[in-house]
Design a protein around this nucleic acid. Sequence first.
DNA 1: TTGGTATTGATAATGATTTTCATTATCAAT
DNA 2: ATTGATAATGAAAATCATTATCAATACCAA
Lengths: 148, 148
Amino acid sequence: MDLFEQGLENEWLRQLGERGSRLTGPRRAIVRVLVRSRRALEPLELFDAVRVEAPGVGLVTVYRTLEALEELGLVQRIHESGGCRRYLRAPQGHQHVLLCLRCGQAELFDGDDLRPLFARVAARWGYQIEEHWLQLFGLCPECQKASA
Amino acid sequence: MDLFEQGLENEWLRQLGERGSRLTGPRRAIVRVLVRSRRALEPLELFDAVRVEAPGVGLVTVYRTLEALEELGLVQRIHESGGCRRYLRAPQGHQHVLLCLRCGQAELFDGDDLRPLFARVAARWGYQIEEHWLQLFGLCPECQKASA
DNA sequence: TTGGTATTGATAATGATTTTCATTATCAAT
DNA sequence: ATTGATAATGAAAATCATTATCAATACCAA
């Protein structure tokens, strides 16, 4: 049992509870899978994974729970050129995503301090900048080996 | 008539032709609207705009033409938290997108040279980096005024 | 233990995108 | 200019992911 993931699981459940949500069986199972996954998962993949341990859970509940977790900022949607339907455990603080194009494995990294760049861009166009995304795509070590 | 946009329109049609596509009325109309739009457009918005000038064009043709233009790299999909269905005239060379959260107005800017950052990330995780996205979101000057 | 109510899963509905297919339009070769 | 092979079109139907509906159930404060 991974202590970090165990702690994260409890923390997510705590935040859900604090928000006024009930800690039901389906929610516990969904959180459990999400916290432990190092891949970004589509709702249907998540559904399948959850049903291994909790066979009764419905797809709709998966969608609803993802929505709640996204509102809490515990999970984030991953954007890819082929579609944007995968979700990943959200980064702590302001981190960025590095995604394997082949297997969907995700890593998080701290960006440089990009604020000077933002300030220049904001000044240049008169925009008030609210948000930014930086995402890198590539091949993870395993997929590099596999394709060599 | 804007000479730059006129030139861009001809260039897109040329590239479509070179690729083996026929230069049909519907395609000309769709290209014309896309080249002139400074906003990122959803397929349905594009459809509506095209039908002002070319009433007979079907929505399916809009989808098909967007697909062809995306393959040619002339148009790019814009990613937003609320969904990822808008398309924008693609940047020249390697530029990044600055998008107004309210009205969808888009600007393109040259990024700093981010390669040192990529090199560090690649080394740290053993990834082979293929692609990157940097996107900024904010309020354009007009929308700032409107909300003040 | 109980009761009020949030949550659930099955089903149906929705909405965007794709596929199908008969008709039409383009354009290279006359 | 005409022709003809075939790419492209638009209408309609199909598909797919996501969302809404609703009666039954499970949670949890009292």
